[in-house]
């Protein structure tokens, strides 16, 4: 694996993280925000796997961590999308801007 230095993988992961960050903060659609968060979680996963591969390849800790992140992401997606559907049912919209009945 000396062909691809660790820095390249980290650059890729951080780029993906920033793209996901931008998406999560600036899209109006609730499901789009969730997609941004999924991208960020995946970027973190790439980091974990890369560090496992390049610095501690004799243990499985990195992979285990990535698996836990996937589990949490799946749980988060299920609850988040259920919330999107519940919001749509009440407000007939999924624009997070419009859901502001708690604004003082």
């Amino acid at each position: 694996m000396s062909a691809v230095p660790l820095e390249w993988v980290l650059m890729l992961a951080s780029g993906l993280f920033c793209v996901g960050f931008f998406g999560a903060l600036s899209r109006r659609h609730a499901v789009s925000m969730l997609m941004g968060i999924e991208l960020m979680l995946n970027a973190v996963n790439i980091n974990l796997v890369a560090f496992w591969r390049y610095t501690q390849p004799d243990e499985v800790g990195g992979i285990i961590f990535a698996l836990f992140v996937i589990v949490v992401a799946a749980a988060e997606a299920a609850v988040g999308l259920a919330m999107a559907i519940a919001i749509y049912r009440t407000w007939q919209t999924v624009n997070v801007d419009s859901v502001d009945s708690l604004r003082g």
Partner: peptide
């Protein structure tokens, strides 16, 4: 990166479940 199992889990969980859930929602 030689994480074969994780790649398969990624396909099974993210593409097969999370992404389909997103499309569905």
């Amino acid at each position: 990166l030689h994480a074969e199992f994780l790649a398969i889990v990624q396909v099974l969980l993210y593409i097969g479940a999370v992404a389909v859930l997103v499309l569905f929602a």
